[in-house]
Nucleic acid binder design. Structure first.
Lengths: 146, 146
DNA sequence: CAGTATCCCTCAAGATACTG
DNA sequence: CAGTATCTTGAGGGATACTG
């Protein structure tokens, strides 16, 4: 994929280039959900081992995941989210909320992301201005770099 | 890409399958930014025409874009965001804010999404519980479908 | 202008066998 | 268990010529 210059200064384009392939966000999703070992991801995703190894390596290179010794003292290592990776949480929630709203039929079975204490789903996540007013796309504009 | 059953009930996985390819979100981004005609997208993205035609067709099939007669009365048609497409705005903002924070060096040139009135950037968009408290990933869990 | 039709090529992805 | 090595396939993507 060959992006024109314009896109190199666009954070959206860079983000898509970094985590916009078909596996990255699913790996990150599972990391948020407690997956840490190679086998965890492999079982949950059902992805071929070589592909998984490659994607994990890339995510480590990008600084989204980090390797550390397994917490249980076994000889292996674990993949954990870095701060950069943890900051993808809003993106996961945005994907999930859009998917819930538009890709499932009424009453169709689906997993849900709920608050631990109450069991309630999260509030709809919407962009807001600095003073807390919901900002729809008509209220904003893209300012090109100087 | 062959997803295991688990993923078919996960809204994140479905969302990635729908708009997780390398062009969809860039097309949607440009639609939010005023692109409407085939040539608009082609010039902005620099993508091959056959690929663009295919992606636009897919987005229309998915109900994210719709075709309507051009507003200027010309013989051609325009691609406009449907409600389903407009609901991708938080996802675009999530991509952008993560990209801004983690994929640009300090002071590096980048485009910015600002409020029309004030010129100020939007507030950081964070998941919240129903009562408005910021919810980080440790505060939630994924509840599997029955 | 807005696509379609071809051709070509690379890489992602899957399957599977193997190794420390 | 956590990968690597190898092979094969197919889809995604690019370039370009053509058409209503």
């Amino acid at each position: 994929m060959k992006l024109p210059q314009e896109n190199e200064t666009c954070p959206v384009a860079r983000a898509v280039a970094a985590v916009g392939d078909r596996w990255a966000m699913l790996i990150v999703r599972d990391a948020f959900d407690g997956a840490a070992r190679f086998g965890d991801f492999q079982r949950r995703l059902g992805v071929a081992r070589n592909i998984l190894a490659d994607r994990l390596r890339t995510l480590v290179e990008l600084g989204i995941l980090a390797l550390r010794p397994a917490a249980d003292g076994s000889a292996y290592q674990e993949y954990v989210l870095t701060e950069k990776g943890a900051d993808l949480f809003p993106l996961i929630v945005a994907l999930r909320q859009w998917g819930e709203r538009h890709l499932f039929a009424e009453g169709e079975a689906r997993s849900a992301l709920v608050e631990k204490g109450t069991g309630l789903p999260l509030a709809a996540m919407l962009p807001r201005t600095q003073d807390g007013v919901v900002a729809d796309s008509a209220a904003v504009l893209v300012r090109k770099p100087a």
